[in-house]
């Protein structure tokens, strides 16, 4: 008999204790509200000062972007990608460091390195990309990076890049020139 009433008392008191917590939160709704009205309000991305030398690290994961004028065609990013979503085709240039304006090839990168290879195809399939950031570290010219964050001065942030067709998510970064113009510079073997 005692147990019966005790059960009722414990049940009601524990429920009331829980409800008092939610009541307190509801009263303080102005201060404690954590809901963001997306897309009008967005959570700030780490463009703020994180506090260390941002030149050596890339603490952002968003869409990949390539400054194709800086790419020397070393293929390091292609080899390190775990899902093989980067495809690069390069050809040997006749002279190292020479500008070839008819196909848009600049001979010297912004860091002063002379380019020995012409990059004729640089495709990244963003639907395959797993955003692991592994391709960013080995690049000697820092020309492949994830947009925004510490790289906002190079490219504004872009993480909402949805398309209607999956094939539109293949981003082509190489200069868009005709095959005949490229074939002038093709040496023995090209894929």
């Amino acid at each position: 008999m005692y147990k019966y009433f005790n059960n009722i008392f414990v049940a009601i008191s524990s429920i009331l204790k829980g409800m008092s917590i939610t009541w307190r939160h509801m009263i303080n709704i102005r201060k404690g509200n954590v809901t963001l009205q997306y897309p009008e309000e967005r959570w700030p991305r780490p463009e703020r000062d994180i506090g260390f030398d941002l030149d050596s690290y890339n603490v952002i994961r968003s869409r990949l972007h390539v400054d194709i004028d800086d790419c020397i065609g070393c293929l390091k990013c292609e080899r390190v990608c775990p899902v093989q979503c980067i495809k690069i085709v390069t050809t040997k240039a006749e002279t190292k460091g020479e500008d070839l304006p008819d196909i848009g090839h600049t001979g010297i990168t912004s860091n002063g390195t002379k380019k020995a290879l012409i990059v004729s195809r640089f495709d990244i399939d963003m639907s395959e990309c797993c955003y692991c950031n592994l391709c960013v570290y080995p690049c000697p010219e820092e020309c492949i990076y994830m947009t925004g964050g510490p790289n906002s001065h190079k490219h504004p942030i872009d993480y909402e890049f949805s398309q209607y067709d999956r094939n539109d998510l293949i981003y082509k970064f190489a200069k868009d020139v005709d095959d005949e113009k490229i074939s002038k510079y093709v040496s023995k073997k090209i894929k």
Binding site: K87, D123, D125, R166, N167, I170
Partner: peptide, 14 residues
Amino acid sequence: YHGIVVPKVKDGWE
């Protein structure tokens, strides 16, 4: 497999 092509293929991608 039951009519679905197993290895993935995509247009324009080797």
